[in-house]
């Protein structure tokens, strides 16, 4: 026989009555202290889950309920009844610092695995599974937006353009791809010397980049790099990874974001920097393979990379929001090693 003191509320008025509840292990409880005693089967009542040391509610049939602070006795009764095991487990987790820390570490590892492997793998699948028409719409919309905010029409001579276009056609001819490869020329002071790869096969070269090149092979190297981005669906994958990453992080840190908006943007920035690094390396590898297959010395790529770095300095990192590159020295090393 177990006894607790509790406050009784009938659910019709806010009147409080102090009562005692007697529990009979045989499966009954009775409440004394009211005008007449109440008796219930334990199976008829519901008990609120334990959260910290907040008062417990015992919901009686009808609308009445009792509130008690005697959490331990209630837990003992539930244990005897074999009820509320899941809730008891939760409370156990929440009440021991050791479990809490263990769970925290486990979560950290899980989250890391998800962001590091899970999301990229999913994004890759999704990027290749996306119908060509959808990715074409994405690419064309993307170009429209860039035309509005970043680009103006190219000032390059018609002759130079058609020369580059036929060069590009030669490069993309042999590729077994369902993408419609298309080269576009644009002028942009803000983007500087730059190249962009948009979903469904659009590559944009800025006038500054074309003028920066001192040899046709340098532009071939740059185009090969961008084609590498397209072949591996990098832009689409970055887009998907970032949105998924944001979704995961926003759901985890729902608590945090309400306090500081900064925390929502931060993880995206980190993700973006990391993903694009791996993607740049992959595109570089593709370019390297292409150059080798066509007997073009990789030094041309190194030359234009170095000139690009000299020209843009630190600013490139700020402007290149579609393609933030790994350290030039790192990439140059890779190409030099191949010579």
């Amino acid at each position: 026989m177990m006894e607790i003191t509790a406050s009784f509320y009938d659910g019709k008025t806010s009147q409080r009555k102090e009562v005692r509840i007697h529990f009979d292990p045989a499966g009954q409880l009775w409440i004394t202290g009211l005008e007449s005693d109440l008796t219930y089967a334990l199976s008829e009542i519901r008990i609120s889950p334990r959260v910290g040391n907040t008062p417990r509610s015992i919901y009686l049939p009808g609308d009445a309920k009792c509130e008690t602070l005697d959490n331990d006795t209630i837990d003992a009764i539930l244990r005897l009844q074999g009820r509320g095991r899941w809730q008891a487990f939760l409370h156990k987790l929440e009440s021991r610092l050791g479990y809490v820390l263990l769970l925290f570490v486990l979560t950290g590892v899980g989250l890391w695995g998800l962001v590091e492997y899970g999301i990229p793998a999913l994004a890759k699948r999704a990027a290749y599974a996306l119908p060509e028409s959808a990715s074409r719409a994405l690419g064309q919309d993307g170009l429209k937006v860039l035309d509005r905010v970043l680009f103006s029409p190219s000032d390059l001579e018609e002759k130079q353009r058609s020369q580059l276009l036929s060069l590009f056609d030669d490069m993309t001819q042999g590729l077994a791809e369902e993408q419609d490869f298309r080269l576009e020329f644009r002028k942009s002071d803000r983007a500087g010397p730059n190249a962009f790869a948009l979903p469904s096969g659009i590559i944009v070269l800025t006038d500054d980049l074309v003028l920066l090149a001192k040899h046709q092979n340098e532009l071939i190297a740059v185009l090969a790099h961008e084609i590498g981005h397209l072949i591996h669906r990098h832009t689409l994958r970055t887009l998907l990874q970032n949105s998924a990453g944001v979704l995961v992080i926003a759901s985890v840190t729902g608590d945090v974001t309400s306090i500081t908006a900064l925390s929502a943007a931060l993880p995206t920035m980190l993700l973006e920097a990391k993903y694009s690094r791996a993607f740049e390396m992959e595109a570089d590898q593709f370019a390297l393979k292409y150059l080798r297959a066509h007997n073009i010395p990789p030094k041309y790529f190194v030359d234009i990379l170095l000139r690009l770095e000299k020209k843009t300095g630190y600013d490139s990192a700020r402007h290149n929001y579609l393609a933030s590159h790994p350290a030039t020295s790192e990439r140059v090393k890779m190409f030099k090693g191949e010579e």
Binding site: V51, G52, N53, L90, L93, E94, S95, R96, L97, V100, L101, L103, F104, L106, T107, G110, L111, S251, V252, D255
Partner: peptide
């Protein structure tokens, strides 16, 4: 009557289980 230490543990478990159950 809330206590920061007690709530800290509840909060960590909340976040962890939310992550582990994918939300």
């Amino acid at each position: 009557a809330g206590k920061a230490g007690e709530y800290f543990k509840i909060w960590i478990v909340n976040i962890s289980l939310t992550v582990l159950t994918l939300g």
